[in-house]
Design a binder for these strands. Structure first.
Length: 573
RNA sequence: GCUGGAGUAGCUCAGUCGGUAGAGCACGUCCUUGGUAAGGACGGGGUCACGGGUUCAAUUCCCGUCUCCAGCUCCA
């Protein structure tokens, strides 16, 4: 966001607060900053606000804008400001002032409204020409869930009404692409109340889509020197105690005791399983790096409020690998992981992504020196590859720092998929070793990594990215064969068998519906190609092609269609 | 988990100021054999999320639970 837009939205936030104060004078104000999509203001109202109040607030904002009130900056000493806001019953403002380091604080005034604020602002309220309130939600004071909860009013503002219009159009488009809606209408998956929140049921078409992605993943891993493993979904709790999950991750784990038996834990991560495989045999330095790979299904007891379609679930499958290597191999292994991510993102049609590095959390395992070293290595690799990244302090896993990759979808939204985490701690806790060239035992280091992240989240992202209109190589149904009348069914069946034989995913729509109705259904199902066969095609051995992108392409020889489809699949368009 | 909103047919939704409900799509049967986005007729389908309470009577009012939505916090 540029400075001008920043100024504009910040000013709009003030006007929002001003309008709320006019309507409900006893409302207490917290903060109101501009954000990526607009702005918000956190308030503590006397009575709960609802979406129905937004038009009233907007109308009041309109009056303030009409009045063309100038924004004026002034200064107060800290003490004076604290007293001033206390006297006006604004405890949140007073609390902010108490924590400010400066002796003087900046105050902005427009009309009767006075707010603690560094600015900058536009000159007058009349400069806000396109503003809209969007939604209302809860938010914690200072982002801490132990603090009181405030009401957050979201809005957005632009310089020109046209820009606002475009913004609202993109929001509408995002709604149309919502993977939860498409998941139902394209019959891809369900999440069923009776079965439990956050648990995904893949319907046949969704399962086909997932298998295509799984096949891709397996092939790519094999090609890059990863070895497949398969581990149990359930391990004795002793393992989770040893790995540290019991201490650091228990609230998220499904654990249970059987009568007179052991305690068990359903795996929330695949690492201990892979570690046990490593530990089961003796290793020479010659075997390293050892890259163990599993499409590993894990279960995590996520808080109910965070669940969201496929993007946040309780049971999911990661394309998970643990690379055991010598310390000196870390750099090249990490580079290999980053190259793998780049290649995969390109293949799936994502061109832009954001990289984030997360450092040591407050609750961590191991010692600080190991962490410093690990963070330094991650930094080094990203810098050496010239990849720009943001640092998210304190957001690492409990066993090591990590690099996360957030891919940008077609609507400019980011979703976290790939992750690479460095770990000196678990090899030590499990006493992992390998035999060095000189015959001495040495300790390997581990990289935990996922390329697509979780298949659930990745599929959700793919659905939204393509709006359900998948490129040919991903489409669950690639071709629909539509015989014009019953007389063409034998020929249509031949076409179907020929295409299936070529490895294409084909369905025949021989329902007694009109051609128009069947074309409509195929379009709504977003099937890439329709082959319409009537008397003319049956006699000439051709098919009439109608494609999702190009429309009616006329009659072509069946062989020619197969050739074009093969080409299209190869190009992964 | 928290704040606010919500749960009516497979889907999208209407409705009942307390007297056990309706549309479109989908589904089934029949008619229609159609040339590039909805042919027609008839029909089946609902414990109005679940459990309690109030009431002569609850889908409707009250309480609890589950689930979903928008965020917050957390995360693949």
């Amino acid at each position: 966001m540029n400075d001008d837009l920043h100024r504009l939205r910040h000013s709009a936030a003030h006007i929002l607060a001003q309008a709320v104060k006019r309507l409900w004078p006893k409302t207490k104000l917290a903060i109101g900053p501009p954000i990526e999509e607009g702005f918000y203001y956190d308030v503590a109202p006397e009575q709960p606000l609802t979406e129905e109040d937004l038009p009233r607030i907007e109308a009041e904002m309109g009056k303030i804008i009409q009045a063309s009130l100038p924004f004026r900056q002034s200064w107060m000493s800290r003490e004076a400001a604290a007293a001033f806001f206390n006297q006006r019953s604004e405890p949140f403002k007073a609390e902010i002032i108490r924590d400010l380091p400066d002796p003087k604080v900046s105050i902005y005034t427009n009309g009767e409204f006075i707010d603690l604020c560094e600015g900058p602002h536009v000159e007058t309220t009349a400069q806000i020409r396109a503003v809209k309130l969007l939604s209302i939600a809860g938010a914690y004071w200072r982002g801490n869930e132990r603090n009181p909860q405030l009401t957050r009013i979201y809005g957005t503002a632009f310089f020109e009404p046209k820009e606002l219009e475009d913004f609202l159009k993109v929001r509408e488009e995002a709604k149309r692409r919502d993977h939860r809606r498409l998941g139902t209408s394209l019959r891809l998956f369900s999440i069923l109340e009776e079965a439990g929140a956050g648990l995904v049921f893949y319907h046949p078409k969704g399962a086909v889509l997932r298998q295509i992605v799984e096949d891709y993943s397996r092939r790519q891993h094999a090609a890059r020197g990863y070895q497949p493993v398969i581990t149990p979904h359930l391990l004795r709790s002793d393992v989770w105690v040893r790995s540290g999950h019991y201490e650091f991750y228990k609230p998220n784990m499904y654990t249970f005791k059987l009568e007179e038996g052991q305690e068990w834990g359903v795996k929330p991560m695949n690492c201990p399983g892979h570690i046990l495989i490593y530990k089961a045999t003796l290793h020479s330095y010659r075997e390293l790096p050892l890259r163990l790979f599993e499409l590993g299904t894990v279960y995590r007891n996520e808080k109910s409020g965070v669940l969201h379609g496929l993007l946040r679930v309780r049971g999911f499958t990661q394309d998970d690998s643990h690379i055991f290597c010598r310390p000196g191999q870390l750099k090249s292994e990490l580079e290999g992981v980053l190259a793998f991510v780049q290649a995969a993102m390109t293949d799936f049609g994502f061109s832009e992504y954001r990289v984030e590095m997360s450092t040591r959390p407050p609750d961590f395992m191991g010692n600080q020196a190991q962490w410093d070293k690990a963070e330094e290595i991650l930094n080094g690799v990203l810098k050496a590859k010239g990849i720009p990244y943001e640092v998210s302090a304190g957001a690492g896993a409990f066993y090591g720092p990590k690099i996360d990759i957030h891919v940008k979808d077609s609507l400019g939204r980011y979703w976290q998929c790939a992750t690479a985490q460095l770990d000196f701690v678990l090899p030590e806790r499990f006493g992992l070793t390998y035999v060095e060239e000189n015959g001495q035992e040495a300790r390997p280091v581990m990289i935990h990594r996922a390329i697509l992240g979780s298949l659930e989240r990745f599929l959700g992202t793919l659905i939204e990215h393509y709006g359900g209109a998948f490129p040919l190589w991903l489409a669950p149904v690639q071709v629909a064969v539509i015989p014009l009348t019953q007389d063409q069914e034998p020929y249509a069946r031949q076409v179907l068998e020929k295409l299936s034989g070529e490895g294409l995913r084909v369905e025949m729509d021989d329902r007694r519906e009109t051609l128009q109705a069947r074309i409509r259904d195929a379009e709504l199902s977003k099937i890439p190609h329709m082959l319409i066969v009537g008397k003319r095609e049956a006699e000439s051995g051709k098919v009439s092609v109608r494609s999702r992108a190009a429309g009616d392409r006329g009659a072509v020889a069946l062989e020619e269609f197969i050739r074009q489809a093969a080409e299209e699949i190869r190009e992964r368009r």
